[in-house]
Amino acid sequence: MPAPCLEVERVTVRRGTTVVVDAASLRLGEGAIVTIEGASGSGKSTLLRAIATLLPTASGTLSFRGLDVATLSLPDYRRQVAYVPQLPPMFDGTVAENVAAGPRFRGATLAADVVAKLLTRVSLDAGLATRAASSLSGGEKLRVALARALANEPVALLLDEPTSALDPASAHHIVDLVVELARAGTAVLAVTHSAEHAARLGGLHYRMTAGVLGVVAPP
């Protein structure tokens, strides 16, 4: 059996002395979808941020393609395992500059036609490229954030409540888009409080309750 894309083994995250995530374990296969459902404050977003290496873990191991993440270059790991927060902040500048941010951090430039393709892929009008990113609606910002993550050609996407700030129509659209990305080979680990969206996304479902992660439905 090949090593999974991501493997979380008994990861504990503390805030001060409080245990927010208690020995959570999960596996995300290459190109698979895994969803974590849970109420606000259950620790699911904290777990996602820990997997994104934005928060330190108190114990447990995090492996990427069979390698302990602690031994990897974090910028390299973060490029390959792209984290998109619930309300993704935009950098100052245009939509195109936002989409090209990841490659720019490693000294590469993204051609205008690549930016246009990425925008089209997330169902945005390529003409938005020259707009100020700050002027976009919440749904548009989320799409730009997805395009920005995809510009790094990640093998996995970590999505924190990707539909929570959207109207139902946009939310369904994003869910479909995520399913499509997974079909195209990008593994997706999505956190959501909507059982309906979790079901639509498919894949393996986990539920987080007071920091404890459990499997709800087998694949």
Binding site: L54, P85, P88, F91, A101, F105, A149
Partner: peptide, 15 residues
């Protein structure tokens, strides 16, 4: 949030 987003996209702390 903006700094963490940059880190999440592979920026070094300095960047």
């Amino acid at each position: 949030p903006v700094i963490e987003q940059a880190l999440a996209l592979g920026a070094t702390p300095a960047q």
